[in-house]
Structures are given as C-alpha cells and as structure tokens.
Design a protein around this nucleic acid. Structure first.
Lengths: 138, 138
DNA sequence: ATATAATTGAAAATGATTTTCAATATCACT
DNA sequence: AGTGATATTGAAAATCATTTTCAATTATAT
C-alpha cells in the first residue's frame, strides 16, 4: 500500500506524522485521477473533518518535493496533482473520465537527439503528455 | 511582418482595429520569448500608455482563439504566451534566456502509435516541450 | 457626419495560493 | 507515562492572477 510508504518517507525526511498529512496522503496516493487541492480537501475531510485547505497545499508541496506527486498540465488548468512514476515517465490522460496512466518514454531519446542536432540546443529535460480516451471510455 | 498579418486576421474575423490591440500584437507577434500578460502590458504601454491590463487579457484571448499564440507551460508557471507555429509544432525553451524555438514533431507518430497499442488508449492529442540551453547560452 | 455596436479602462469581484499568527500536537528525551 | 522544544495546525488576512461589470469612448458601415 502506497500510503504507508509515503508516510514513512515523510517521516524519514524529518516531517512529523499528523492527521492532516495522513488524510491528504490517503486521498492522493491511491488516486488514478489528477486532483486539485480543493478536490483533495473535500475528499480528505470526509475522513478528517478538521482538515484545513492550507494544510492540503502544504502537504502537496512536500509530496512534490519528495518526488511522490507531480503537477499535471491540462487545457482547463494546471493545478491538479497525480502520483509520480519511478524514474522518468510520461502521462497519458483520458479526456473523458480523467484517468491517468504513466508510461515509459525511453524511446524518445532518438527523437530528442535529432532535435538537438537540428536546432543547436543542448536539451536537458522534456515534458510529454498524451490525451485521449482510455479503454473504458473509447 | 507578422504584425500586419495578425491585425488583418483580427479584422477579417470581425474584430475592430484599435490602439490597444495594435499595441499588444506588436509586442507579442515578434517576441522570441514567452511573455506573461503583465510583461505584455508593461512592454506595450511604452508605445500606448493608455493601455489597460484588461485589454491585454482580452486581446490575448482572441489571439489564442485564432491560433496565433499558444500558452506555454513551465515549471515556474503557465501564464506565458508565445506565437504559435503553423500546423502541429512543439516547443523548445532555453532555461537561461527564455528563447523559444518551434520544431516539427511528425517523427513522433510512430512512438505514439506504440503507446496506444501498449496502453489501450485512443490517443487524440499530445503536448511536448523540451527544455535546455540555446546555442548562445550553452 | 452620424448612428450603432464593439471596445475601452477603472473598479469591483472572484478564485487560487501564500503568509501570518496564536493554539495545538508530535516526538525525543527522560 | 510525563515533559518540553518545536513542527504543525487551521483561521484569517494578504497577495496575485484573472474575470466581470459598467459607463464612457471609438471604430466602422452607412
């Protein structure tokens, strides 16, 4: 269960284990959809009603720092977060249900090298996101 | 000169040609860096001091509608705009000076098909951005 | 020249995020 | 188990980006 690993990692990094953090981690660690801070807030308060929105922001910030979640950029906005993959992975988003799938992008290296050659840039990082319909929705 | 084409296109689409629009278009049509609304505002007021920030937002909205500019997503934020390329193109951003270069991404089709096969998604759209150092900065 | 409707800038409203702060809760050390 | 230092909390206020409202102005077809 990802939740316990995440909580352990928070603790290993000197952060205390609190009700607010537990509640936030429980919602986002197992979600297959990208969630905005307010969505996390609403969902997490069902288990932990005292939760404040500010603590959601603060916890998300720490989870992002630790590489456990990543921000998802979409046409409607860029506030949502989803768990991050191990190593370098890319996002595939279902435009209908919002389901998020991670996939490897090693095959891109070739392509990126060719762009570097053509443009003269030294390329250090890349962002790739695919949008479409998942198996259920298509 | 891109400026005049953009202004003509605005007019062809039923929009009036005003000082505010001219000023905004002049700044963004020839920029090689992505600019935020406030950056456009500050730069455009040097030529047209009466300009209001609201008109910058409204003009950017129309330029985006017409496909002349596109929003640029970056780690520091997603409010900046740069001129769009013809057809489907991708962005290459210099992390140092902010210079933006467009490049073709036709070569990606193969890769995207393989992701579709592996994941079961029907893929309709993709976003790709590369970050690095341009020839001058590296 | 004139009339009409689009456009303007200022101000207010909204929405997202951050900061401040006094109260509380976690955890290391007994 | 109890205690103390300090990290963390939620609420309220502050900030920043964006949108809406509105009366005044301006572009353009006639």
């Amino acid at each position: 269960m990802a939740v316990n690993n995440w909580l352990a990692l928070l603790q290993e990094n000197g952060y205390r284990l609190t009700g607010a953090r537990r509640a936030v981690v429980e919602i986002i660690a197992d979600s297959h959809r990208a969630l905005t801070p307010v969505e996390v807030y609403d969902a997490a308060r069902e288990q932990y009603p005292a939760l404040g929105l500010v603590s959601v922001y603060r916890t998300l910030e720490k989870l992002e720092e630790l590489g456990l979640i990543q921000r998802v950029h979409q046409p409607q906005g860029c506030q949502a977060f989803i768990k991050a993959g191990k190593g370098h992975q890319h996002l595939l988003l279902c435009s209908k249900c919002g389901r998020t799938t991670l996939f490897d992008g090693d095959d891109l290296d070739q392509f990126i090298k060719s762009v570097a050659r053509k443009t003269g840039y030294q390329i250090n990082e890349h962002w790739l996101q695919l949008f479409g319909l998942c198996e259920n929705c298509k």
